[in-house]
């Protein structure tokens, strides 16, 4: 195949203990470490492996967001992507708008595969890939833990509630990936230098004919309900007694 498009979302690093800000308008992001969404790193790793096997010629990474997303795109280029596209907007976007933006880029680039993460770990939405596939009128295979390509089809093993489901999809298609698909590579210093010379194009969201304005309003961010402080027991008899007291045995 010619091209694989991979979505990289800039998110608060998964190791950060996220806190809601004092006025409930969002979460604290000042001074917080930002990273590529972990699922998206796996998506990119898979695309790179497909290319390295000789099954694809070019891997393009794309991010939708502020100019800060260039950091994540540069990391993607350092991992091995050939070029990057930033769909620039300083405003918050919703999933449908992001899917529409991805569709615009898909229509320009005509990739045979779009690989996204199954969910972004900030909004935990798990929507964008399915929406893009619907708008593009192409197949989707979500939560992939194995991807096998042969000719014009992909055979994908999906992680589902009851176990593993295998489906076959015709290309072009949208795949979203789960954590067990692969282990992303580490970026090496020389690759970071090389990545600086790779093309990173920018297109404004508005130039794709789209406006950010989310349809669903984010009214209030709150910390989750806290659990009451528990008790410590010293040994197994103490544990059994405590369980009995709560009527759980």
């Amino acid at each position: 195949m010619e091209k694989i498009l991979v979505g990289l979302k800039r998110v608060v690093d998964y190791n950060v203990r996220v806190r809601v800000n004092s006025d409930g308008s969002g979460v604290e992001t000042a001074g917080v470490k930002m990273s590529i969404n972990p699922f998206d790193e796996i998506a990119l790793e898979e695309a790179l492996r497909i290319k390295e096997r000789g099954d694809a010629k070019e891997v393009i990474v794309i991010s939708i967001g502020s100019s800060d997303c260039q950091q994540q795109l540069r990391t993607g280029l350092a991992m091995g992507a050939d070029r990057a596209i930033l769909v620039a907007t300083d405003d918050a976007t919703d999933s449908l708008t992001r899917a529409r933006a991805l569709l615009e880029i898909v229509n320009r680039e005509s990739p045979e595969l779009v690989i996204l993460g199954k969910q972004a770990i900030d909004d935990d939405n798990n929507q964008t890939g399915q929406m893009l596939a619907a708008l593009w009128d192409r197949p989707q295979a979500t939560s992939a833990s194995t991807i096998e390509l042969s000719g014009n089809t992909a055979r994908v093993i999906r992680e589902v509630d009851v176990g593993l489901e295998t489906i076959e999809v015709d290309l072009p298609a949208v795949l979203t990936v789960d954590l067990r698909l692969n282990e992303p590579r580490y970026v090496k210093l020389p690759d970071i230098m090389k990545a600086k010379k790779k093309p990173l194009d920018e297109v404004a969201l508005g130039d794709l004919g789209l406006t950010a304005a989310p349809a669903i309003t984010e009214v209030l961010f709150e910390p989750p309900a806290e659990r009451e402080k528990g008790v410590m027991v010293d040994d197994v008899p103490g544990l059994v007694a405590a369980l009995n007291e709560k009527g759980l045995l």
Binding site: A134, Q140, A215, I216
Partner: peptide, 23 residues
């Protein structure tokens, strides 16, 4: 919010031209 629901509902939403609320 099951593997089927998560797979299906965003696809339905996009076909209807609306967003989806998860979970």
């Amino acid at each position: 919010s099951s593997s089927f629901g998560k797979d299906l509902m965003p696809r339905v939403a996009a076909l209807l031209g609306v967003n989806q609320i998860s979970d």
